[in-house]
Amino acid sequence: MDLTQSIPSLVIANCVVVLAAVVQTSTGMGFGMIAAPMLALVSFEYVPGPMLFINLFLSLLMLGDGRAHVVRAEVKVLLPMILAGTMLGAAILLLVPADTLGILFSVLVLVTVAITIFARALALTPRNLGICGAAAGLMGTTTGIPGAPLVVLYQHEPLSKTRPTMAVVFTFSYVVSLIALAVAGMFSVGLALLGLLLLPGLAVGFWIGKRVRGYLSARIGRILMLSIASAGAVLLLMRSI
């Protein structure tokens, strides 16, 4: 992307990041679901690498904001399965022709939305944690949205627990996904710098999100997340076709 000719695109991308960061900071989830399809509409260069890179900063901020409430027993089960799913996701990206990535991306986002809407909440058993962890790794690497399988597990859990626990899980997921994308030749220093240009939007969204936690409920955040993700994915699919 020629940054000297894309200031409007950067402004729009930062506005998308503000909204996504507000929802994520308030409810513990939603950044990738909102940002991925909308950023892809602005420019496909933003996803998944730069978006994952910038979301890493948000996860670190949220982790520092409530690390005392992290549920370590659940994290220990999730992390190795996320790593396994990440490796599978990187392999899929290597096998998919470049000219069909837009279609694959939008379809996977719509699948993510469907999982979030229709899948029933699962018990937090080691087996379910492992399955959802692997799915999160796969979807995080291919779309930048690791959260949907985890929403199925954590949608009825207290936000005081969900926010910091997911911050640990997402931080790990983003790091291993970025490493996998770099190995696959789909993330570079240039794309990392592009991600850094989204920091203003992230900072503003985090600041607003902390102040609306008492007003933006998980239900409202969920409606916003699913509505924006669905609309963005449909538009992207139409454009890609």
Rank of each mutant, 00 (worst) to 15 (best):
A123M: 07
L19C: 14
M51W: 07
L196F: 12
V111G: 08
T116K: 13
L138V: 14
G130P: 02
M29C: 06
G214P: 01
L153D: 04
F187S: 01
N14K: 07
V151I: 15
A36L: 02
G205D: 01
A73K: 07
I103V: 15
G85Y: 12
G147I: 10
T27L: 04
L150G: 10
S230W: 10
I82H: 02
L83A: 14
L153Q: 01
P158I: 08
M81Y: 15
V47A: 02
V111Y: 11
L236P: 02
V22C: 14
V75L: 05
T165F: 07
G232V: 11
L236Y: 13
F57T: 06
Q155D: 14
A114H: 04
S106G: 15
L122N: 10
V16Q: 06
R213T: 14
A192G: 02
L10Y: 13
T86D: 03
R211E: 00
S177K: 08
L197Q: 15
L60E: 00
V109F: 02
I223M: 07
K76R: 10
M166H: 10
L58W: 06
R163H: 03
S9F: 10
G30A: 03
A119T: 08
I223A: 09
C15L: 15
L138C: 14
T162D: 07
P97D: 03
I115E: 06
V183P: 13
V189Q: 04
L237A: 14
L178G: 00
I7S: 01
V96Y: 00
A180P: 14
Y154W: 15
F53R: 01
M225I: 12
G201S: 09
L178S: 03
P50L: 15
L10R: 08
V109L: 14
G140V: 11
E45P: 11
L41T: 07
V107W: 00
